[in-house]
């Protein structure tokens, strides 16, 4: 019996194809191959943030989620694993990349396994993934695999990059296969902070037994 997994690739690369996308695709392919060996079927879906740039900017300033952006958010909501890849600009992840993840509900990605990847023109940016991107994904309460991927121009001719891609892919597959996300969500979902209608509109439980709810029903404030 094989288990079906959804892998979502998010790329903030700007050209077509971009090295940022290329790096993410190599991870995705590796995840699919490793998955097959472990009797997991991995469906790969790719989100090119470049195509959503206008909707992302609108969402940031007006809260309006356009139709294509909504599709991307829904894909992430159902993802079993994520590969998030961005170019480095001015010593940080692309603003398009961070903007996209800043729009998401805080609880949309809880416990989802993630591979982080970045590309740059120089190796001097190598710590951007670990120093900056991990913080964002920690805030979103994802579980980021131990191996961060970074490719400067010279890395594309270095077999060391392939080795790191293999490592990251295996770490992701291990987390997906272990059902980490499901366990956390099934057993601990209520312990994370939620807003009414968050988690992509699925979080609809209302605690009627709170101090504020008692106050709403004519009680006294604590």
């Amino acid at each position: 019996m094989t288990t079906q997994f959804q892998l979502v690739v998010v790329s903030a690369g700007t050209s077509d194809p971009s090295s940022t996308r290329l790096l993410a695709d190599r991870v995705a392919q590796r995840v699919a191959t490793l998955g097959t060996q472990k009797k997991l079927t991995v469906d790969v879906q790719t989100i090119e943030l470049r195509e959503l740039a206008g909707e992302i900017a609108n969402a940031l300033v007006s809260n309006h989620i356009g139709a294509r952006l909504q599709k991307a958010i829904t894909a992430l909501q159902h993802a079993d694993g994520i590969v998030a890849s961005t170019p480095v600009y001015k010593a940080g992840a692309s603003g398009l990349f961070t903007s996209f993840f800043q729009i998401l509900d805080n609880d949309l990605l809880i416990a989802k396994p993630v591979v982080l990847a970045a590309t740059a023109g120089t190796a001097r940016h190598a710590l951007v993934v670990d120093d900056q991107m991990r913080g964002l994904f920690a805030y979103l309460r994802t579980v980021v695999v131990p191996t961060s991927l970074f490719a400067a121009t010279e890395d594309w001719t270095d077999t060391g990059l392939n080795k790191r891609i293999d490592r990251a892919a295996l770490e992701l597959v291990a987390l997906m296969a272990a059902g980490f996300e499901k366990t956390v969500r099934d057993e601990s979902w209520g312990r994370y902070q939620h807003e009414f209608g968050s988690a992509g509109g699925t979080e609809l439980s209302i605690d009627l037994d709170s101090d504020l709810m008692r106050l709403a029903a004519g009680g006294a404030a604590n």
Binding site: F196, I206, L208, L212, L215, A216, A217
Partner: peptide
Amino acid sequence: IRTPEIAEQAAYY
């Protein structure tokens, strides 16, 4: 716009 407590208060009264 998004606060269940306000809806609860409206309903209570």
